[in-house]
């Protein structure tokens, strides 16, 4: 029985009359790449925020890394990495300074930060750019760097909120290679996306429509169930039921 690192049970978030996330239930296993799909406004980001402790659930239960999202907020934060939809590095800091900063706020030792920084610079072939302001890097590099920074402190779980928005296909491929590497080293990856080709890369995907999870399985099984050739088709079949507009 593999370890469950994220569990959600009828997790719900309401904003006034509007139910952004409606009783979603799922489990994510350790080391899994879990794709969280949905049209814009389907509630992906809200659901993810509840799991990260950025947003308080209205009802239902959830645990992340074994900790309750209501009570053990602070403990969860120590065990997760997060890459936001918006670009999350500081433009006016150099590549190295950004890494030092994030290592610092996670309370890592100087030796750890030094080794890890050298390792990442080597991995990303950014040694020459170590002292370049992030502002002047191309977007693809920035995204890869942002991912490295999100897992800098070696968390058990990393949450990626539409990490590849606006990135070219080649870089997206490289980005996914990094995700595989992280997964191989035991990091659980929870990723939202609306690129359906990326959904194929995930171990399992859930598809959210109007705040509810309409489907949850491996990409292969989903395609079979819906008699579709690609995830794109599966998604379109499900998303057509949506009543909410693009949001």
């Amino acid at each position: 029985m593999p370890e469950k690192v994220i569990t959600a049970d009828k997790l719900t978030k309401r904003f006034g009359d509007f139910t952004a996330v409606d009783q979603i239930s799922f489990e994510v296993e350790k080391g899994e790449i879990f794709g969280f799909l949905g049209a814009n406004g389907a509630g992906k980001t809200t659901a993810m925020r509840m799991l990260c402790g950025l947003s308080m659930p209205t009802s239902g239960a959830a645990t992340v890394a074994g900790f309750d999202v209501y009570r053990d907020n602070e403990k969860i934060k120590r065990n997760i990495g997060y890459m936001s939809q918006k670009f999350s590095l500081y433009d006016d800091l150099t590549v190295k300074e950004n890494m030092q900063f994030y290592g610092g706020i996670y309370g890592k030792s100087d030796a750890f930060i030094k080794n890890k920084t050298a390792y990442i610079l080597d991995e990303l072939h950014l040694e020459k750019e170590a002292h370049v302001l992030v502002r002047s890097l191309p977007l693809g590099w920035k995204q890869k760097l942002a991912f490295s920074v999100a897992v800098f402190h070696e968390p058990g779980i990393v949450f990626l909120d539409e990490p590849t928005g606006g990135v070219d296909p080649v870089t997206r491929r490289e980005f996914w290679n990094m995700i595989y590497q992280a997964s191989d080293s035991g990091i659980t990856v929870f990723v939202t996306t609306h690129y359906m080709d990326e959904a194929e890369y995930c171990n399992r995907v859930s598809i959210m429509v109007d705040g509810r999870i309409e489907a949850l399985d491996t990409p292969g099984a989903l395609k079979q169930q819906h008699e579709a050739r690609s995830m794109d088709e599966v998604f379109l079949k499900l998303a057509r039921k949506a009543k909410r507009g693009e949001g």
Binding site: K77, I80, Y82, K86, S88, Y102, I105, Y106, G107, F159
Partner: peptide, 13 residues
């Protein structure tokens, strides 16, 4: 505005 505050709030800081 930049979205970095979100990252900050997710950190143990």
């Amino acid at each position: 505005e930049m979205g970095t505050m979100e990252v900050m709030l997710v950190s143990p800081m």
